[in-house]
Design a protein around this nucleic acid. Structure first.
Lengths: 338, 338
DNA sequence: TTGTAGGCGTTATCAG
DNA sequence: CTGATAACGCCTACAA
């Protein structure tokens, strides 16, 4: 934790100056900017005018010092540039801003170490709450956050830590459903395309699908060719489709994997989708709806996730509620025969 | 600016408590956490142990009060979920974190009003700097930021405001180059696909391309079917390709437009790319490199943009430097005949 | 309704 | 090397 030493910058205009210019006291200035404080319209007007002239803005940081609430919510995320992560950050920032919060984004490598460092920052800035989208923080640190009155919200994590709030999406039901959809489409040999990430959600989807497939008498294989992303979908397809026993149906635990898989199947193996190969994804990222893909997938309920986050951030008592598990929704498009 | 009234939360552990537990003074605690301060290893160890036991973390907000620097950099952006925006946010957050800054993301609607509100927040939180990726803030407000010692950095904005720092990407050269590339590929009738956004950069690309095309004796048309995005590319293609005088080469001012255009041309108009139609994009978003597209495009130098942002954030003097205009780089893929 | 005094958590300054 | 003290900018009693 190295601190770079630098000279202080020019001070910004404070309430003192405004008070002086307006010919009132510091408190009057404070009150003019506090909702529901008792100020005469006159005084208030004078203060506002002076503030405007000087370019004064209330210092939320100093204010947070007194209130023990900063209005800051931290978002810990890795690989924000990926479509799903980008979408979730987009909607969360928007919703939190709507309730007067401001979002601090901490971009981690996703590794445990990075998440831990990010969570420390969270403490340093006295965030009111922290939302962890990627990675799992150490339980001890989560405890510290909680003790400091900070809410901790874990998204799509099923880790058995006690203390934080959990919001996640169903994994078993859609994985099961995917298997059924492929079977109904007449597929005999299926495959799960996963990544090496080892995220609990992805693992659960894979496991459930494999079990269901076996149970339904489907030949099933698993591929994990690399990190979660388009290229891994490509690599998986190259491996999986090159074998003598090509699958005729695949469940990709992520849309991005599915898109890479589809492109490769079509362009390098000249397969037709869904005639020769059925593909199912997960997430419903915007790209899945593009004309070139029209991927059948499971939609993550981003809006509902955001709703729950907002509710947790706003609630008064710090007691964590029951874990929230949200259902996904099948989005039927054109990569699976009906 | 309504402030919701809420009870203060539980106070978090402060240096006082740590000092008490460690049996030293507040100052000692402070020094233990300050790089290069003179503390005996002993004292330091005691403090650190106590801090760890109590879960103490330095309050950066209180610290910022003294230093007039908070370590916060604000990022004003609209439509973060779009690939290009997501990529730039990703790289900027990463780089700024690397120099010990923390990024606050303000998601605006992109309208002037939203940008203004976002910039006000920036002031409220005493950010060291603000990076505006989307939209143009009012000049007066920028002035206020500057006066408060806050750096203001505008990305891809050519607005004639005085005061902020400008980092942008060349628009004329690539637009010109695009025209030449299409001509060399044997195109006779070309089109520019733009959006209704009216961003200075996009306008410049369109204008330059149109002029160049006319100069080179190419028949040229312009389409602006909606906001910047995939769907607008689709809509443009439906309009432009349905006419009797179909273009055989298009320059899309954004990759996303190009991808929508390509999908529509291929699937709805059964055109082959690049045989029947050459397509050039701009930005080089990850999707442009996907097997299904292999779009020839101009790469925005995200890394260099981030470099300049970091340099500006770190520099001591507040004087704005010369506007920085970065060159783009052609990425030859497969949508233009060589 | 207004002003004054005290404190929030931290660091810089100055004695010791 | 250590501890007391005075800021930083703000809010909230309290008294006027």
């Amino acid at each position: 934790m190295s601190k770079v030493k630098t000279k202080p910058r020019k001070a910004s205009v404070s309430a003192d100056k405004v008070a002086e210019l307006a010919g009132v006291s510091r408190s009057a200035v404070s009150r003019a900017f506090t909702d529901g404080a008792s100020v005469s319209p006159e005084t208030r007007a004078k203060v506002l005018a002076a503030a405007d002239q000087l370019g004064y803005h209330v210092n939320h940081l100093a204010r947070g010092l007194l209130w023990h609430r900063t209005g800051i919510v931290c978002l810990i995320v890795a690989g924000m540039q990926a479509p799903f992560q980008a979408s979730i950050v987009e909607i969360i920032t928007r919703r939190l801003q709507a309730i007067g919060k401001v979002v601090m984004v901490l971009n981690t490598s996703g590794e445990a170490e990075g998440v831990e460092a990010a969570l420390r920052q969270t403490l340093n800035y006295r965030a009111d709450a922290t939302v962890v989208i990627s990675g799992t923080p150490p339980a001890s640190l989560v405890k510290t956050c909680l003790e400091n009155g900070q809410r901790v919200i874990l998204i799509n994590r099923a880790d058995p830590i006690k203390g934080p709030e959990f919001i996640s999406v169903e994994n078993r039901t859609p994985a099961l459903e995917a298997c059924l959809m492929l079977k109904r489409a007449g597929c005999r040999r299926v495959a799960v395309i996963n990544s090496t990430a080892g995220t609990p959600g992805l693992e659960m989807r894979e496991k459930t699908f494999v079990e269901a497939a076996a149970e339904h008498g489907l030949e099933v294989s698993v591929s994990r060719a690399g990190p979660t992303g388009y290229q891994t979908g490509v690599d998986s397809a190259r491996q999986v489709l090159a074998t003598s026993r090509r699958p005729d149906g695949v469940f990709c635990v992520t849309d991005l994997l599915a898109l890479g898989f589809m492109d490769t199947a079509r362009l390098e193996f000249r397969m037709n989708i869904p005639e020769d190969l059925c593909v199912i994804g997960f997430d419903d990222i915007p790209e899945a709806g593009w004309l070139g893909y029209e991927l059948t997938t499971f939609r993550q309920p981003l809006s509902e996730i955001a709703d729950h986050i907002v509710a947790i951030v706003e609630k008064e008592d710090a007691e964590p509620g029951q874990p929230v598990v949200l259902p996904t929704q099948v989005v039927w498009r054109k990569t699976v025969r009906p």
